[in-house]
Write a protein that binds this DNA or RNA. Sequence first.
DNA 1: CGTCTTTGACCGGCGC
DNA 2: GCGCCGGTCAAAGACG
Length: 473
Amino acid sequence: MEPLDHKRVVNEMDFFAGDLSSRQHVKVDDDHHVLLQDQADDVNTGLNLLTSNTATEKSSRNLKEKQRVNQVADVRAELERINAENQRLKLTLNQVNNNYYALQMHLVSLMQRHRNRVAESSEANKTEMEDKTHGGGIVARQFMDLGEAAKAEISESSSEDRSPELSGSPTNTIVESMERREKNSTTTPEGLPHPPGWLPSKAPKLITAMDNEQAQQTMAMIRKARVSVRARSEASMISDGCQWRKYGQKIAKGNPCPRAYYRCTMATGCPVRKQVQRCAEDRTILITTYEGNHSHPLPQAAMAMASTTSAAASTLLSGSMPSADGIMNSSIIPKGMMLPGSTSLVTLSASAPFPTVTLDLTHNPNQRPLNQFHPISPHLPPHLLGHPIYNQSRLLGTFLSSQGNNELIPGHLGQNYMQVHPMANTAATATAITADPNFTAALVAAIASIVGHRDNNGNNNSTTSRNTGDNST
DNA sequence: CGTCTTTGACCGGCGC
DNA sequence: GCGCCGGTCAAAGACG
């Protein structure tokens, strides 16, 4: 707490000069009583402190006493305010999560219905064409099969029969995004107009060798699209709701910390892999890189992460791909979680070996490492750092550093828990949270990625590892 | 005994 | 062609 400016302690002091709406004021009334007063409802908190201006020493003593009282009141008020804010954020987050999930289900069901209709109509068209062209139809069919194979390669689990839960995985979203883009084309390779909802590989299509090659290249890129999550954690792996089995470990060049390779074991044959590695520069930062799409329903806890990462991956590959390393201010964070005026806390990289999205959930590296195993100890973090692995991401924003605030609301990606800490450290913390939409957006996104853990009552340790130590990283 | 981790071997891509 | 490097495989061992 900063020492008070005595000159300001005349009649009214505002310890939160700036922006908070529900802050408390300390008032000295006409009888020299120090009153704690809430700006919103003008409630006298009852801390009447008799003051005197007759003797200088008394005045000085009283002043110190006032300062102490002010400090206590300040902390108490902040505690209450943060608690209220915490509750409000939790409620909002729950609502947003529910809405997002419902929308996702709705969208997938609509798409499935639409595709069924398209498949039926194009099946009829195909039969008609084959009847007309005889031999030519055979050639066409061969190309069609190529197209089908290529498509089947990317969406290793068909989007037709996957459950709505699956649509949250990164590559699924990308594939759908591709399909949407191709749908926007106006003609088929044969020069025929596309029927509504025309899909390149679901509906019959003549694919030239060139098209096929390009398609395969694009699809290979999609398959390799990655989402990287940087989080501060002392555990060997962050919990994301899925079950993983370690299948390898390597020392990668440029980082003395070993990189661990995991594959999803929630279903046999699930192609999803992830790499876990500590940041070379700051070993309290854990970098988790996801690749592939799940071939099985995801639990709610995993859905949250999948939603966040899929939105990120989708943004990377849909629309304009950055020609070089760059930052896109697009809504990586699912729309419902994005606050107005906020920018994404994500860095995109297209020049990496694979297109990579980095969600940075770390913050000031000078902050002490957190006790990973404390159930409520999180540090959430808007501070964006570059991607250490590919050395190509850029700083998106360091809004708090510009405000001179190094202390943030405690929050981090815990092994089993995620909870906004009920108490912030300083008034500046509270100010930063409310004032900066970027922080709130980051908070929401990060919480969303692990919110399911609390729902699971802590019984959702994603790893099946028996390791208790951090021996892999 | 089944499951999982560890770790050296192996493979493929890429640059020189 | 060769070496480097990232990624994966699979045998062996650990663990409950």
